[in-house]
Design a protein around this nucleic acid. Structure first.
Length: 473
DNA sequence: GACCGAATAT
DNA sequence: CATATTCGGT
């Protein structure tokens, strides 16, 4: 917490440490912090534990509001306490930092050469799991105490890194696992670097997606992505982790689309059969109606990247005519589809972050972005470099009325295939109703959609009538 | 040994 | 749930 406050509060700890506190540009999507790429050398102090080497001003927006904090675990908080406790905020800070590193180093050494369990048996470890928190809260030992602790041995009430990062295992009479993991941790952090949870803000994610797109989903490997993103404070592991999630979601999404497409295909065939088949068969097909053997009129996307549940009342229309969606790509155009997918991800991310952080989220970037020039947009990328998308999700739940209306609309579409192919209509209008809308394009209300359809000569057909009246061929 | 991706942990 | 870490394979 305090760690965050250091970085968050320009007037307090950060200032005291001589941080060059800057503000985030307000420019919505474009917040590609070229204007604060400069990294204050003073940050090196902090870098000792927290690799914020390129995160000079990550936590403020232009209003000086506190921006979403990085989710830090208690480990981080402790170190924050180290960094921000009064005695570390002045000239002494540097020494403290150094001391802390030193302390950690010593601790590591001992952990490495002494079995934790043995230490425990010796009674050297004084903190039980439950006490750790209290230790956290009461803060860190005074400088002198730290020195003393370091001198006396590594484990006397000094809760160092591995204590926290292993969930307090060091203090418990826990077993080999904890000690070995502590060892690992210790060796890993021997350089004093501390891993902070990366906050994948929309901006960051956008960069990520752009990099992935640029490389191609197949060739997109963490190291390359990182290279293209050019964000120093990210590690290959951060990228890998995010990439894993990205791929996973993407996979689900594609599976979903494939499924929908296959349904569309079936539907197409069925129409063809019904239109050209014998009367009996035709009647059967008509009687079966559009809902039997077909997927629901709209396909809700999988819970992708924190898709918000939307109340039925405020749910946007799940479908709208193709002509009202000029941006809609077709599955025939892979590039457009890919771009749409990318836009979709961006939109998902924006939506998620709005929910998470509120409407000002766009200014929040945990790491400064590279200058835009560093990122080449795919030539065919049809969306703006920094698209701000409007969320157009399908409804989480439908009221009866909405459901009826939808069924009706569906039937209208069924009964009056547009000049475009049924396939396209299904693929675009029904299969992917959740595609993002570019900013400025508000999703049409169901009402407007329907009246538009009506204007286009598509009458409102009562479901009963529609189902007994198969579409003309 | 570095990297990757999936699995698992936090 | 999001992210980090681990682990097995290349």
């Amino acid at each position: 917490m305090l760690e965050v406050s250091i970085l968050r509060s320009p007037s307090k700890a950060a200032d005291q440490r001589g941080f060059d506190v800057g503000l985030f540009p307000t420019s919505g999507g474009g917040g590609d912090c070229d204007d604060f790429m400069g990294v204050d050398d003073n940050l090196n102090l902090l870098e000792s534990y927290i690799d914020f080497s390129c995160c000079d001003v990550p936590f403020f927006d232009a209003d000086g509001d506190i921006l979403p904090d990085l989710e830090v675990d208690p480990t981080d908080e402790l170190l924050a306490e180290f960094s921000s406790s009064p005695e570390t905020t002045s000239p002494a800070a540097e020494h403290d930092d150094a001391l802390k590193q030193q302390l950690q180093g010593q601790h590591q050494v001992v952990i490495g050469e002494e079995d934790e369990k043995a230490a425990d048996e010796r009674g050297v470890l004084t903190l039980e799991k439950d006490d750790k928190k209290a230790a956290d809260e009461r803060g860190v030992l005074e400088k002198d105490d730290k020195k003393a602790a370091a001198a006396a041995g590594p484990v006397v009430g000094v809760t160092t890194e591995e204590d926290y990062s292993t969930g307090g295992a060091a203090g418990s009479s826990d077993d080999t696992k904890s000690s070995s993991s502590a060892k690992k941790k210790a060796s890993k952090d021997s350089n004093g670097k501390r891993k902070v949870k990366v906050d994948w803000t929309p901006e960051l994610h956008r960069k990520f997606v752009q990099a992935v797109e640029q490389l191609g989903i197949d060739k997109a490997v963490p190291s390359r992505i990182l290279e293209i993103m050019g964000i120093e404070c990210l590690t290959r592991h951060n990228i890998a982790s995010h990439l894993q999630k990205y791929r996973s979601h993407r996979k689900h999404l594609m599976a979903r689309e494939a499924e929908a497409a296959s349904w569309a295909q079936k539907r197409h065939s069925m129409y063809a059969a019904a239109a050209s088949g014998a009367p009996a068969r035709k009647a059967a097909a008509a009687a079966a109606g559009p809902t039997i053997g077909f997927p629901p009129p709209f396909c809700r996307p999988l819970h992708v990247w924190g898709h918000p549940p939307i109340a039925a009342a405020e749910a946007p229309p799940p479908v709208w005519p193709r002509h009202l969606r000029p941006w809609a790509p077709t599955m025939d155009d892979p590039a457009a589809a890919a771009a749409a997918a990318a836009a979709y991800w961006n939109q998902q991310y924006n939506a998620a972050s709005i929910r998470k952080w509120g409407p000002h989220h766009q200014a929040a970037v945990p790491c400064p972005m590279p200058p835009p020039a560093m990122v080449q947009l795919p030539t065919r990328f049809p969306v703006p470099p920094h698209p701000t998308m409007v969320v157009v999700p399908p409804p989480a739940a439908m009221t009866t009325t909405t459901s009826k209306q939808l069924a009706e609309l569906q039937l209208q579409l069924d009964a009056h295939p547009s000049k475009e192919s049924i396939d396209a209509a299904i693929g675009d209008v029904l299969v992917k109703p959740w595609l993002p809308l570019p900013l400025g394009l508000k999703p049409p209300s169901l009402h407007s959609v329907m009246s538009e359809l009506h204007k286009q000569g598509i009458p409102k057909v009562p479901p009963a009538a529609a189902s007994s009246d198969p579409p003309p061929s």
